[in-house]
Amino acid sequence: MKKLVLSFVLLLFVVNINTLKAQNEENTGHSAEKLAKQLANPVASLISVPLQNNFDFNLGAFNGFRYNVNLQPVIPISINEKWNLISRTILPFISQNDVTAIGTNQTGLGDTTQSIFFSPKEVKNGMVWGTGVVLTIPTATNNLGSKKWGAGPNLLILKLQGQWTYGALANHIWSYAGSGTNDISNTFFQPFLTYANKSGASFTIASENTQSWDSDTFSGFAGVYFSKVLKFGKQMMQLGGGPKIYYGNNPLNPEWGIRANIILLFPK
């Protein structure tokens, strides 16, 4: 399984590099640069459908493996001349083995996370912000979720400065219903820094951190990613990925992982 995963990731990067070399920068450079910058902004006016593939190794006491692909459609909606509403859905599909015990495996859906941001269209001094609500919907199967409904506030602040985009996303979710035995009170914090060049290539450093106040556990990881906006026929997309290193006191934390993204783009 691990050899298959690593072969897939290697193939992705080979395709990415070869396509990058063959790309005609004169014809697509400007639009690719704009799209790369928009992708670094979670509340940009860009419809996108990311397929985020996560391969995580050495989970927990049994050194398990987990593959998690997140379907994450992002849809901006113009409310009026001053405001946008951005819908961001994360629906995970999970396949894991040797996580709960040696020789076990689970495959199915995880819980859905639905974020709704309200963001002003006008950007002043490069500052962008959005605020709204985040919801947890118990769509998980095969005991891969919390069996809880949750909700809470969501906040994003970022700065656009030339080729750089940097900022942070934060939210907190409390459970309020559901059949699960454990309540949810989780704080999530995601700082990020992206440099996008004129060819549409981008380099990102980001971390994702979750503090569970009910179980007193902290889990997080830091990742370094390379991505490139490409055009296949008439379809614009971004391919990319990179390594992740985990930290925290969560006993189910992996030791390390790899993220590989395929993002379909639908610019207006």
Rank of each mutant, 00 (worst) to 15 (best):
residue 3 K to E: 13
residue 4 L to V: 11
residue 11 L to G: 11
residue 11 L to R: 01
residue 12 L to S: 12
residue 20 L to S: 14
residue 20 L to A: 14
residue 23 Q to K: 14
residue 26 E to G: 06
residue 29 G to D: 02
residue 32 A to P: 01
residue 32 A to F: 13
residue 33 E to H: 15
residue 34 K to S: 12
residue 35 L to E: 00
residue 35 L to C: 02
residue 38 Q to M: 14
residue 38 Q to Y: 08
residue 40 A to P: 10
residue 45 S to V: 05
residue 48 S to M: 09
residue 49 V to A: 11
residue 49 V to T: 09
residue 52 Q to L: 08
residue 53 N to K: 06
residue 56 D to Y: 05
residue 56 D to W: 03
residue 57 F to I: 00
residue 58 N to D: 15
residue 60 G to N: 10
residue 62 F to C: 01
residue 62 F to N: 11
residue 62 F to E: 06
residue 67 Y to T: 11
residue 70 N to Y: 08
residue 71 L to E: 02
residue 73 P to F: 06
residue 73 P to M: 09
residue 74 V to Q: 13
residue 74 V to A: 07
residue 76 P to T: 07
residue 77 I to K: 02
residue 77 I to R: 03
residue 78 S to D: 07
residue 79 I to G: 01
residue 84 N to L: 11
residue 85 L to M: 15
residue 88 R to M: 09
residue 90 I to Q: 14
residue 90 I to K: 13
residue 91 L to F: 13
residue 94 I to T: 10
residue 95 S to F: 03
residue 100 T to P: 02
residue 103 G to H: 10
residue 105 N to T: 08
residue 109 L to S: 09
residue 109 L to D: 01
residue 110 G to W: 01
residue 113 T to E: 04
residue 117 F to Y: 15
residue 118 F to P: 04
residue 121 K to Y: 03
residue 122 E to R: 10
residue 123 V to I: 15
residue 124 K to F: 07
residue 131 T to D: 00
residue 131 T to L: 09
residue 132 G to R: 07
residue 133 V to D: 00
residue 135 L to M: 12
residue 135 L to F: 12
residue 136 T to L: 15
residue 136 T to G: 12
residue 137 I to P: 07
residue 138 P to A: 05
residue 140 A to L: 02
residue 140 A to E: 03
residue 143 N to D: 14
residue 148 K to C: 04
residue 150 G to L: 07
residue 152 G to I: 03
residue 152 G to H: 09
residue 156 L to Q: 02
residue 157 I to H: 02
residue 159 K to Y: 08
residue 159 K to F: 04
residue 161 Q to N: 10
residue 161 Q to V: 00
residue 162 G to H: 06
residue 164 W to S: 08
residue 165 T to Q: 06
residue 168 A to F: 14
residue 168 A to K: 02
residue 175 S to H: 02
residue 175 S to M: 00
residue 177 A to I: 04
residue 178 G to L: 06
residue 179 S to M: 03
residue 181 T to I: 11
residue 183 D to G: 11
residue 183 D to F: 00
residue 184 I to D: 00
residue 187 T to G: 09
residue 189 F to R: 09
residue 194 T to D: 09
residue 196 A to K: 01
residue 200 G to K: 04
residue 202 S to T: 02
residue 205 I to L: 15
residue 205 I to R: 00
residue 206 A to R: 14
residue 207 S to G: 15
residue 208 E to Y: 12
residue 210 T to Y: 03
residue 212 S to D: 15
residue 213 W to N: 04
residue 214 D to K: 15
residue 216 D to F: 08
residue 217 T to C: 01
residue 219 S to I: 08
residue 221 F to N: 14
residue 222 A to N: 15
residue 223 G to C: 04
residue 229 V to C: 00
residue 229 V to W: 04
residue 233 G to D: 09
residue 234 K to F: 03
residue 238 Q to L: 12
residue 238 Q to A: 13
residue 239 L to H: 00
residue 241 G to V: 08
residue 245 I to N: 04
residue 246 Y to I: 08
residue 251 P to A: 10
residue 253 N to T: 07
residue 253 N to A: 12
residue 254 P to H: 05
residue 256 W to G: 05
residue 260 A to F: 06
residue 260 A to W: 10
residue 261 N to A: 14
residue 263 I to G: 01
residue 264 L to E: 07
residue 265 L to W: 12
residue 266 F to Y: 13
residue 267 P to C: 08
